[in-house]
Design a protein around this nucleic acid. Sequence first.
DNA 1: CCATATAGTCCTCCAAGCCCC
DNA 2: CGGGGCTTGGAGGACTATATG
Lengths: 364, 364
Amino acid sequence: MVDRPDAGAPVRDDRDDGAPPRPPAEPRPPSMADVAARAGVSHQTVSRVVNAHPSVLPGTRERVLAAIDALGYRRNSAARALVTRRSGVLGAITVGGTDYGPTSTLLELEDAARAAGYVVTVATLRRGDEASIGHALDRLLDVGVEAVVVVAPTVGVAAVLEHVRASVPVLLVSSWVAGLQGGPRPVGVHAVAVGQQEGARLATEHLLAAGHREVVHLAGPQDWFDAQDRVAGWREACAVAGVRTRAPITSGWDAADGYAAGRRLLDEGVPSAVFAANDQLALGLLRALAEAGVRVPEDVAVVGFDDEPGAAFYSPPLTTVRQDFAALGRAALETLTAALAGGDPADVVLTPQLVVRASSHRPS
Amino acid sequence: MVDRPDAGAPVRDDRDDGAPPRPPAEPRPPSMADVAARAGVSHQTVSRVVNAHPSVLPGTRERVLAAIDALGYRRNSAARALVTRRSGVLGAITVGGTDYGPTSTLLELEDAARAAGYVVTVATLRRGDEASIGHALDRLLDVGVEAVVVVAPTVGVAAVLEHVRASVPVLLVSSWVAGLQGGPRPVGVHAVAVGQQEGARLATEHLLAAGHREVVHLAGPQDWFDAQDRVAGWREACAVAGVRTRAPITSGWDAADGYAAGRRLLDEGVPSAVFAANDQLALGLLRALAEAGVRVPEDVAVVGFDDEPGAAFYSPPLTTVRQDFAALGRAALETLTAALAGGDPADVVLTPQLVVRASSHRPS
DNA sequence: CCATATAGTCCTCCAAGCCCC
DNA sequence: CGGGGCTTGGAGGACTATATG
């Protein structure tokens, strides 16, 4: 229901000086001054109305709102950001393409951000190398984000964060402690995470409790903090149970990697239990085992990580570790708002949850 | 390597009038004027340098760059956007949570946008109802996006687009023609898509060519343009082959929906071929069939849509329709840049590709 | 050819003005 | 006549563009 911008607008009294005729200025969106003129008030009053300031008479407010509606006015975010020094924009860098974990985290983060009145600008990277992250960060800072969230960080962020020098708060969605061992954490850098190590421990303990004497780990790329943490949790659980470990099989995050690892296990000797670092790896593994006629869970028990949407429908349905991405997104935003308010919020670590399905049912 | 902002900065000669002492202003990021002062030039010259304007002496440029580096200056995007009327930001609305299609499209769009110097602000909606889309659009326009991309549109966008009245170009990633039947397309609204109807036809024809006399369609939610188009393609292929169709089984997009549909088929009578509207539906269907001891492809042939990352590793590996999301993202961005340049780019429809795997191998 | 001054962008904050009781 | 509620005008804010030295 938006009228044409100039419908009924008061005629501007162009000064009749000998100034050269202006070029036929391309249609400029209506400004606060236009609204003010139409409503017969000052631009300041219009500002008060749009910012819900109390000191405006109901009648005046009505007139202003009518003018706003008639002109189709929207306030100019650039001018607003310029003077308030606040853009209302958060930046998010995610690594890992369309993988379920990063995608869900971003989704929930954006949801929480929207609820808090922010908007999220993204840089979705395929690879987490230093250069990519550096460029992405630069871009985001260039467009004036108030804070940056790095989802699914790889070791490359460490070096990059030195460079940023905390011109805005930075939030890592990752277990920091395990990540950047050694160096002190730069100021202005915070962290929230679901306990990856704990999740891996849960998965491994589940298999060990079922009587398996060895749990092979199919690990993710080791330049990911999360992948490192999952290795650590697996190792820890095995150590506590006094079970020996072979070196984890390291690869990417994809089903194809899981399939390749499965082939390798079939060659080298199939263990009775495998903990895969994510569900896609587990899916590929399941496929390799099925092709070889190895039964799951009768011959091999398999556990994944993520509980991605299809996991309950794999063959067999996959036991896995679920992360509460919604809670993670909320925690991320709370941390960020606290940091933006000048505080120094503590890190948050959420607890993951084991979801038991058919792929791990029977001990050998 | 960023010095503290005021290191070595020239002392400002505060005027000695009786003005009240300013409050200890919170540390303001360095402005162009600060850089200019430090480099001993005017702010305009600094502007020239950062915008790679030719008319600057090499020596001057050096001094300015040194000052920029020393102060850790970055240009203020708000001020820049204010005067140029260009934010460098595109808005993207996606519907469908973490589903592979929308996610991939967004990823590739962002990639193309970055290459073109844009940054993308997202609103990731779970549901595509009118209110959600309307709010999301409002938010994006409020932060000053130059154009809006709507990924995976549902019928709700139609009404919303009336409302927007083309204050910025809008791009639908969807087959428009099939979508908003009837009403004329609003000006400033463009469309790019992978031919959904064609993809569905390819899938159905593949099954029919293998000798199946009936292809049951497991459809997606019918408030999605894409779901409607896939139904149309399936129907068209069946009609051409002179094969009768039962009403498609309509549901959501999830594996659980596919599973439920599978159970229903098991009750009502299992056809020899099923075309599922996406891979997750097919996955759920495969699971239901496997549980009932129905073999795929021996007893039932199954084809999906999307070729999501795990599809090649389902049991059995899934025949499906692949969409070139990278090309889609590029096409989207080309269309948008053309529209922003004042043109009226024609719609783009890309061709999908059938990927044949084990799930459809044998005719009955 | 290079550099500077000046105007203009649109908004928010601050101080001052108006009005009416 | 003075005060509170409502409104106004003017001063930035950081940058680009258009003349001017």
